[in-house]
Design a protein around this nucleic acid. Structure first.
Lengths: 120, 120
DNA sequence: CAGAATCCAACCGGATACTG
DNA sequence: CAGTATCCGGTTGGATTCTG
């Protein structure tokens, strides 16, 4: 469903109706736009990773944040949590097939971001 | 520069060093990951739009936010601001060629987001 | 019309300490 | 190891009002 828009002779567009739907981009961002969400997903792309390893990989983020995002990703089915060992507790996180579908545009973002002239 | 990682027989990865670089995805998100940034850019893809029209199109966002994001996008060269008329003040915003390069990613995101089974 | 200014609540997110 | 709990400062962002 597209917003009804008419274009005048100056090329400007006038919105007849507000964009009611959060524009898809909004809803998508709500899922993977979290501060560390993208990084987490990205670091899982090559295989399962244990919690502390993940925390080390991301560095900048606190455990609290990692857990929070992981829980969210898990709830949305992008990531699978699996207890491997219980002697010394060991948990690994793995990206799901669904989560993998998000990697396509995350890679797009990465490529775009890397091609930036300067990153201030 | 890739993080040095070794893989054990269980397929788990161990980070030898922390991911110092913000992983590209992080820096990219800092640019177009703002709450309304994506939507703004997206709404500019078909041609220049006036401020209030843009505000109407996005709806959920307050003017304050729109201006803030626009200024940021302008400073980063993704968007061009142009005063059209001064009698009744009229300003239009236009996406730059550089900004257009981000649209490929945004479109990828949109497609992904629209294909979601359910958006809670 | 296109903002700027101000106020203020909500949430984000880091640090630290504790637990099984 | 893999979290949980708590504290708390900073930022985000909405509502509202004012201006050229």
């Amino acid at each position: 469903m597209r917003a009804r828009v008419k274009q005048d002779e100056q090329g400007r567009r006038h919105a007849a109706e507000a964009c009611i739907e959060p524009c898809a981009i909004e809803s998508g961002m709500r899922i993977i736009g979290g501060k560390w969400t993208g990084s987490i997903l990205w670091h899982l792309k090559d295989g399962p990773v244990r919690f502390n390893d993940l925390a080390r990989m991301i560095g900048g983020a606190s455990k609290k944040m990692i857990v929070e995002r992981l829980r969210q990703l898990e709830a949305q089915g992008l990531v699978r949590r699996e207890v491997v060992d219980s002697a010394p507790v060991s948990v690994q996180y793995e990206i799901t097939d669904f989560g993998r579908t998000a990697l396509t545009f995350l890679d797009e973002l990465r490529k775009w971001s890397e091609g930036l002239p300067r990153t201030p």
